[in-house]
Design a protein around this nucleic acid. Sequence first.
DNA 1: GATGAAAGCGGTGAGCG
DNA 2: CGCTCACCGCTTTCATC
Lengths: 170, 170
Amino acid sequence: MNSSRSEYALDDVDWRILDELQKDGRLSFNELGRRIHLSSPAVAERVRRLEQVGVISGYRAVVDPVRAGYGITAFVQLRCKLGSCLLRTSRAADYPEVTEVHKLSGAHCTMIQIRAASLAHLEGVIEQLGRHGELHTHVVLSTQYQDATVSRPETIERPVTPSAGWSGPE
Amino acid sequence: MNSSRSEYALDDVDWRILDELQKDGRLSFNELGRRIHLSSPAVAERVRRLEQVGVISGYRAVVDPVRAGYGITAFVQLRCKLGSCLLRTSRAADYPEVTEVHKLSGAHCTMIQIRAASLAHLEGVIEQLGRHGELHTHVVLSTQYQDATVSRPETIERPVTPSAGWSGPE
DNA sequence: GATGAAAGCGGTGAGCG
DNA sequence: CGCTCACCGCTTTCATC
C-alpha cells in the first residue's frame, strides 16, 4: 500500500485522472477513460499505481458538517505546557471534535481545527483542550471556501518579485 | 440537489451509512447494505436522500498533498484593508494554492489555508496575499492528523463544568 | 496503450410482508 | 419502510495485437 519514495513523478495524464477523481470519486474506469481519452485497462493500471504509491490515499463521501448537525467551526492555536502536550497525552479518539492537528512554527506549537454542534459544545471542548496549555480560539463565522482539489504544481507556479533595495552586491 | 432546510434529522442507520461511505466512498449499495445489515434497494434509497438533502455533498478521491508535490502547508490570518478585501477583489481561481477560506470573529477577519510546492512558492503566494491587508503566517512543520470523519453529535456530547465561583444567585 | 470478448457484479423495479 | 427476486446493463479483466 505504500511506496518507499515520498514523491512520485506525475505526468499530464496522471493529473487529468486526479482532477476527475477529485471531482467524482465514484467514476468507473470506463467513464474515467472516456473523459481523459484513454482505454479502461490503461486507466485502471494508472489509478492502481497512484493508489499504491499513495498519491491517492482513499475515496470518501464528503459530508457537509453543517447539514450533519455541526454548525460550529473553530480554529484553536495551542501552546502546550511541558509534560501535558496534546499530542503526547491524548489520542484522536479522545477528541472526536478535533478535525485537524498541525504542528506549527512560530509562537504557538499547534493549530487545531474543531467541529462542534453548538457553542455550548465548543465551550466544553475548549475547556478540555485548555488543560494542555495556553490557547487562542478563533470562531468561524462562515466558511467561504473549502475542499479545494490539488492540481499540478507546474500550472500555478508564481514568480516572486525580488525586493529592489535588498539585492546582493554586484 | 438541494433541500429547503439546512438540517435534516439523521437516524442511527443514516449515521452508519455515513460512517462507511466516509471510510470508503466507492462502496457499492450491495456491499454497503451487507455491512450495515440492510438490503441494497433500502440502502440506495437512503443514500439518495442523504445526497438530495445535501448531507452527502459529493464523492472524492483523497489526494495526499505531500506525495502530489505540495510539501508545504501554511495558515494565514488576514486582516483585510477596506476596499481590498480578498473575498471581494479575488476569485478562487486566482489563488489555486488557497485550500480554505474562513471568515473569523476576533482580530483577524480571515483564516486561510495554503498548500504550496516549496517555500519559494509559498513566499510568492504570501506576497500576493499581502496586498489585501495585514497578515500573520504560520508555516506547518508537520501534520499530525487531518480528514477526520464526522460522526453522530449525540455520541460525543461533552458536559461543560460550570465555573464554581460564578453561578447565578440562588 | 488499444481492442474485443466473456464473466461477474451491481443497479433498478415490481410485488409482498 | 424494508425485503426478495429477477432482469438488464455495465464494468472489469484477460488475452491479443
